[in-house]
């Protein structure tokens, strides 16, 4: 096993054990020896692995959530000042549409922030008008929409139609239980992408970034 792979596995174990001090030690050492870009890469790979492990049933949602929260916290403590502002990643907006359950979105936000993307969160229980105003005001390029309830998922279709009319270049990613349980639903509502698990977000963002260029 390569040194990088071994380090990633150590990081995965520390994250899912909710062992903050071990995560901090691993990431700080990586930062000192290999630099911040390497830290971000290692962290992204570890979080992708944890997300995929949730999808196949070998890790829990609680572990995915705690991994994201710990990653964000530790990364913020070791990042150089102004590091994020120097990055040229597209601005990402997050919103929990109509629903009031924000755990899924919190997980994805933490993961995406940990990978160096600028993220602005609109909040929970938001409607079409809130989202349209938000996209314009914050100059959002990629919008991540989370829902828990089926009626909210179905109502995403109207939201996406309105975004397409007002901000046709904005890319839309949907996620949440209804989209996972009915794999045709994201296409039906007109989303550009659907994330089955939080770890998929990095691959999705890579694809969307290519389309935005």
């Amino acid at each position: 096993m390569s040194e990088d792979l071994e380090k990633k596995q150590q990081l995965v174990r520390a994250l899912v054990s909710v062992d903050k001090s071990a995560v901090s030690e691993i990431l700080s050492t990586e930062f000192t020896t290999k630099g911040i870009d390497h830290v971000a890469d290692t962290l992204q790979q570890a979080l992708e692995e944890i997300g995929t492990a949730w999808e196949n049933g070998s890790m829990s949602l609680a572990q995915v959530y705690m991994s994201g929260v710990i990653s964000e916290e530790i990364l913020n403590s070791i990042l150089p000042a102004n590091y994020l502002s120097k990055l040229t990643q597209p601005k990402i907006g997050t919103a929990v549409f109509l629903d009031h359950h924000n755990l899924g979105m919190k997980i994805v936000s933490s993961l995406v922030r940990s990978a160096g993307y600028p993220v602005v969160d609109l909040g929970v229980g938001v409607n079409v008008d809130n989202v349209i105003d938000f996209i314009g005001k914050e100059e959002i390029k990629i919008l991540l929409i989370s829902v828990l309830m089926l009626p909210s998922a179905l109502a995403v279709e109207e939201l996406i139609q309105e975004i397409a009319r007002t901000y046709p270049d904005v890319k839309i990613v949907v996620g949440g239980a209804p989209f996972r349980l009915d794999t045709n639903l994201s296409e039906k509502v007109g989303a550009h992408e659907m994330g089955k698990n939080a770890g998929e977000i990095f691959e999705i963002l890579s694809r969307l970034k290519r389309e935005l260029i």
């Binding site: 899912v16 949730w54 049933g57 890790m59 829990s60 949602l61 609680a62 572990q63």
Partner: peptide, 9 residues
């Protein structure tokens, strides 16, 4: 469910 909380916990 182990989807939500790991079995050991």
């Amino acid at each position: 469910s182990t989807d939500i909380i790991e079995k050991s916990l």
